[in-house]
Structures are given as C-alpha cells and as structure tokens.
Computed example of a mutant assay.
Amino acid sequence: MSELLSVDGIDTYYGESHVLFDVSLSVDAGEVVALVGRNGAGKTTTLRSVMCLTPAAEGTIEMDGEEIQDLDPHDVRQRGISWVPEERRVFGGLTVAENLRLAARGGEEDRTTQIERVYERFPRLDERRDQHAGTMSGGEQQMLAIARALVGPETDLLLLDEPSEGLAPQIVEDVADIIRELNDEGVTVLLVEQNAEMALGLADRAYVIETGEVVHESPATELLNDREAMETYLGVK
C-alpha cells in the first residue's frame, strides 16, 4: 500500500491552550485507520488539524506526498479529503435533496450528477429525497451526513468523527456496514470513535491518543484482543 496521509509531529493549540503534542500518524491508501481514546483526548482536534480548521502550529501534514498544513479548508477538500463532523449537523428543516444540493459544487449539470451518484450509492436516501432530514432516524441522518461529505470533488480520504454517537446498537451496525462498503469501493477512512470495539472491528490499524499524545500504535485486532491495553487506555473491561 502507498501512504496517502502523513501527519508528522504536529502541535495544535486552541488559543493559549496546547492541545496536541507532537502527534504523528499515517494512513495508507485503502485502509481504515482508527484513532481512539477517551473523551477530550484530542481525537477531534487531530481531524480538525488535518482539515486545517484548527491549523497545526508545528509539524507537517502531507496528502499524497504534498504538504497541506498551510492550506485553507476549501483547498484541503479539493485535495480529496472529506470530513463528517461529530453530531452529524444535517439541516433538519431541509429535505434530503436540499441538504445534498447545498453541499454540491459546480454548475447545475455537475451538481445534479454529483447528487445522483450519491443516490446510487445510498438507495435509502434516494427513497427519502423529499423527506425533511429532521424527521429521519439517527442512522439515516448519519447516512445523509456521510453522503453530503461525498458530494463534490472525488473523496480519496474520509475523516469520520464519532459516527456511532447517540445511535442504538443495531443502527451502529448499519453505520459500520456503510463504512465497510465505502472502504470496499476504494474510499480510505480515518475513523475517530468513542465506541472503541466498533472502531477496532472495522479498522486495519489503530492509534490511541491520550491527553494530546499518541501513546499506542498497532494492528487494530491486536489492540482489540489486548484486554489489559483496552482497559488501560480506553476504560473498556
């Protein structure tokens, strides 16, 4: 596999608060990589730094061999990175079609083509294109959030922030299936997830972040089967 994303020694701040300390990780093309850790460990900030929403003050971030840490978020998206933020953030008062149209880019023909591709990938959204997003189930809203991130330039790397948050166990499985299907179709995934067992069950490799520092890296199954490490790092017994 070739390296798609490389994060090398980044330090990130919120104002005067130092949040990430020398964080390094990599994602190879075709992988699902999980970034797990306790609440407040720095998982979301890492994704925000990759998207240049909260730019790193030190270190480098490369996408497909080119540095991106100084780009605007819009330009990061143009490089093939999409972000699905925590809590989904769909527009509840708008229909599925309207949510997708807001995310589409280009002329009318291009926008229509982008949205139709999404409907082909997510038939359930096609069935609900005229339904208001706020009336959909949590799992369907998460599907819409993922679909919205895929509208526009081709997505090579999908950043997913807590996609199972607030969902019932069966719906979590449905979301996991969506992630597997996207990965099977060639989308590389960096997955931030509080549900460590779900994330590690999906991932090829895993990083554990603790108080802003990466403290563990291993194949995902190795971490999942190491009950002592799971309890020490993640509080999972």
Rank of each mutant, 00 (worst) to 15 (best):
L158V: 10
N183E: 09
L159Y: 09
M136T: 02
R128T: 12
H132M: 08
E109Q: 12
L157R: 04
I179R: 09
H132L: 15
T113S: 12
D130R: 13
E108G: 07
T112G: 00
E116M: 11
N183M: 12
I179E: 05
E140G: 03
T113Q: 13
E120C: 01
D184F: 12
F122Y: 14
E193N: 05
T155N: 05
I146H: 00
Q141A: 08
G107W: 08
E127I: 09
Q170D: 10
L144M: 07
R128K: 14
E109T: 15
D130G: 11
M143I: 12
V118K: 00
R121H: 03
P163D: 02
D156T: 05
N183H: 05
Q141V: 09
E165Y: 02
R180W: 11
H132F: 04
V151Q: 00
T135N: 13
P123D: 04
V151G: 03
N195G: 07
A133R: 01
S164A: 09
I171P: 03
D177E: 15
E108C: 01
P153G: 06
E120S: 14
R111P: 04
A147N: 01
G106I: 14
E181G: 07
Q194I: 11
P153R: 05
R129M: 13
E120Q: 12
L158P: 14
Q170K: 15
A168N: 08
